[in-house]
């Protein structure tokens, strides 16, 4: 078993900087998700760890061993690719056995490991087929089984579920989590899907513009985003951000008065859509409803408060209709104060 240490890794393509000096520690057996929009450098970082991409500077350590200059085959890791990359001219069995055969494992070991990996992914009945005869979901299972068969200490996954349909994705997500937890495999997982990252990871590294904006457990990322970007990228709907004026260490919006960590000037108040609860008229934040989307367990309201657009998750008894004005009060302790200039969370406020 082994952890991954990424130390001051930087990557530029010509004049374009893909990764700004970046460090990340993945503990032994931990599942870390690299989450970010496309072009944020998350896949580049994963490929550098895999050895498929060169770094401009910095070091990569796997299990304490510097692998920075080793070719991929000597890094002792396994990888699952976005488009599966199952070898089309080999049977499923040979695909899964590929890594073991390359490592010159003996016949009984190959047989045992292939059966075990196939069993974990529930594809024992497909071993004799060729990938051309499989569906996308089955190919994905083969790709994961191929990675698991070598019993890697470190597993890299590059958006492995993004080509599957929604239902299959949910099913695979749960299975992956169970299998990897069981095996205790250190996993670095790239995704742009925040529900995937939230559901799977022990810790999430939210990336933006070639740097890690925040590295924290899922709920911490959700509740206390380090920057405005993290708050608006993680969670559906995204976090609401209201620009307000501070005066004497407090902000006043309508009848709502809240203590804030700035004495004067502009400040940004971040609050999750479900953390705004209806209050009695005349108190709280006036919210003019423009759109009502009933979603079963709750309704999603879009409207304006303090002349800015916000979204509110409404689970109240009474039906709400567009054009109405609600009064809202935030749950105490669920407000994140952000610096209006650089969009960073103000320390010690949450």
């Amino acid at each position: 078993m082994a952890g991954i240490a990424i130390e001051n890794v930087r990557k530029s393509f010509g004049s374009m900087t893909a990764l700004k000096e970046l460090s990340l520690n993945v503990e032994d057996g931990e599942f870390v998700a690299l989450l970010g929009p496309s072009g944020c450098g998350k896949t580049t970082l994963l490929r550098i760890v895999a050895g498929l991409e060169t770094r401009t500077s910095g070091r990569i350590l796997v299990g304490g061993r510097d692998v920075s200059d080793l070719p991929p085959r000597e890094r002792k890791l396994a990888m699952v690719f976005q488009n599966y990359a199952v070898f089309p001219h080999m049977t499923v069995y040979e695909n899964i056995a590929f890594g073991l055969r390359m490592a010159k494992a003996d016949r009984t070991k190959v047989e045992r490991q292939v059966q075990r990996a196939a069993g974990l992914m529930h594809i024992e009945h497909l071993l004799g087929r060729h990938p051309g005869q499989l569906s996308g979901g089955q190919r994905q299972r083969v790709a994961v089984a191929r990675a698991l068969a070598v019993e890697p200490s470190v597993l890299l996954m590059d958006e492995p579920l993004s080509n599957l349909d929604a239902l299959l994705r949910m099913e695979m997500r749960a299975e992956l989590k169970a299998v990897l937890r069981e095996a205790g495999t250190t996993t670095l997982y790239v995704t742009h899907d925040q529900t995937e990252a939230m559901g799977l990871a022990d810790r999430i590294a939210v990336m933006h513009g070639g740097r890690i904006e925040q590295l924290a457990p899922p709920m911490a990322v959700y509740r206390t985003p380090a920057t405005v970007f993290v708050g608006s990228f993680v969670g559906a709907p995204p976090m609401n951000f209201l620009r307000c004026q501070a005066a004497d260490g407090a902000v006043a919006i309508g009848a709502l008065k809240l203590a804030c960590p700035r004495n004067s000037g502009e400040i940004v108040m971040g609050v999750r859509a479900e953390d705004l609860l209806p209050a009695t008229a005349g108190t709280g934040l006036p919210f003019e409803v423009r759109v009502v989307e009933p979603l079963g367990s709750h309704a999603l309201l879009t409207g304006t408060a303090h002349r800015q657009q916000i979204r509110v998750v409404y689970a109240g008894e009474r039906d709400v209709s567009a054009g109405e004005t609600l009064h809202l009060a935030p749950i105490a302790g669920r407000i994140c104060w952000m610096d209006a200039a650089d969009g960073r969370a103000i320390e010690g406020t949450t």
């Binding site: 498929l52 990888m79 089309p88 390359m102």
Partner: peptide, 17 residues
């Protein structure tokens, strides 16, 4: 696809292999 080759490298192949 290039990924087929990359997968082969990851699972223990040299470029030639």
């Amino acid at each position: 696809p290039r990924e087929l080759e990359e997968a082969a490298w990851i699972f223990g192949c040299t470029r030639l292999q």
